[in-house]
Computed example of a mutant assay.
Amino acid sequence: MATPLSADALVAALRAEGVTVVEHPGWRTNNRNHKGSWGPVNGVMIHHTVTSGTTATVALCFGGRSDLPGPLCHGVIAKDGTVHLVGNGRANHAGSGDGDVLRAVAAESIALPAPNQNDTDGNTRFYGFECVNLGDGKDTWPAVQLDAMARASAALCRAHGWSAASVIGHKEWTSAKIDPRGFTMAGFREQVTARLARKPAASQASPASPATPTHQPFPGAAWFRKNPRSAVVTAMGKRLTAVGCSAYAEGPGPQWTDADRASYAKWQRKLGYTGASADGWPGAKSWAALKVPYVKEV
């Protein structure tokens, strides 16, 4: 358990992790503290919004709805990777969930129990990020957004001395929710772990402009298993070729193929992986080591 960060400390932690932060007017005093305690905190909860458009989503999450007053989270993470701060204190985002899950998060257990009861107030214990996505399984998660989500989560984990095991999805807190949808939380926690293994990024010179990473953020293990067609695949293939791990008869190109997987397996073996660890499916650590140049398209 930990004492929640002050508003200034939260902003500093996010910016130190390389996050582009926009402070919504009034966010520092926008909370539900009159309805219950805020803290001690145990972790970070990730949500999808079931909305589109940054401006409308930020307004909704700041003010809430007639049946659910705002703030609905602490920060909204837009498609372009910008984090819009909308609340500071208790927020209506987690609701009731499983106390066994809270105990596992507090213990930083790698294996979370499946939620089967709603007996614990999560709004007291978790920071919440609402991430702009329709949540229909079809709306894409841009790499820059996933990177910002991982950075924001890592910022809080770093500030509190937590591991990535302190980051969960809403669906892992209660069986009544399905968010976030479109990536696995296990894969996302790998991204957070990879971020925590690095030194914090320097504060950004301009907090109003999105950060552009030098290397392509890890899109998550599940992304590759969907046989994506993306410039990211081309960039990866060119990088694999450059490090002497090509299994391509032609290309590489944007469509993920068996040749990409065979080439990546060569890279894994070059790193010393064996057996199932060298199966050709990218993981966060081997991806970070490959240093694929950043491309906008995912």
Rank of each mutant, 00 (worst) to 15 (best):
R158N: 03
H215F: 15
W141L: 01
A2V: 00
E108F: 14
A176P: 04
A9R: 15
G244Y: 12
A231R: 09
K270L: 02
K291Y: 04
T140Q: 12
Y273C: 02
W256V: 01
T124Y: 07
V22T: 11
A91D: 03
G251V: 10
A56S: 14
G95N: 08
A249K: 15
G63T: 10
R158M: 01
V50G: 06
P113N: 07
D279M: 07
G280H: 09
A186T: 13
W267D: 03
V298P: 12
F183T: 08
D98T: 06
W287V: 12
V192G: 04
G75W: 01
K296Y: 09
A143R: 00
A12N: 04
A56E: 11
A59T: 13
P210F: 04
A154M: 06
I77N: 03
A221Q: 13
Y248C: 09
W267L: 09
T55G: 08
L240D: 02
L290I: 08
R269L: 01
T57F: 06
L112I: 13
E172H: 04
G39M: 01
T124S: 13
S175D: 14
V22E: 13
G18W: 03
Y264E: 02
K177W: 06
G122R: 01
S277G: 08
V292Y: 08
W267E: 05
N118P: 02
G63H: 14
D147W: 04
A211Q: 05
R229I: 13
A114M: 11
L196H: 05
P115D: 04
E17K: 09
N42H: 11
M45C: 14
A288P: 05
S209I: 13
G97R: 00
H170C: 12
K238L: 15
G161K: 01
S246K: 15
Q117F: 05
T57D: 12
A231V: 07
P210Y: 10
T49A: 09
G64Y: 00
K35P: 05
K226G: 08
W141F: 08
P71M: 02
F62S: 14
V105A: 00
F218Q: 04
Y264C: 04
T257C: 06
Y273L: 03
Q191I: 02
Y127S: 03
A202H: 11
S206K: 09
S66N: 13
P210Q: 09
E23C: 12
I168L: 10
E172D: 10
P180Y: 07
T29N: 13
W27C: 02
L146G: 07
K270Y: 03
Q117V: 11
P113H: 07
A276H: 11
D67L: 09
G70F: 03
H170L: 15
D8L: 07
G275H: 05
A91E: 06
R15M: 04
Q255K: 15
Y248I: 00
L290N: 14
G122F: 02
K266F: 04
M1S: 10
K35C: 07
P252K: 10
H48P: 05
R261V: 08
A165E: 10
H74Q: 14
G75L: 00
C245Q: 15
S52W: 11
P71I: 00
K35T: 12
T174Q: 03
P40G: 09
N118A: 13
D100P: 04
A16K: 12
E108H: 14
F224L: 02
N33H: 07
P210C: 07
G280T: 11
A7I: 01
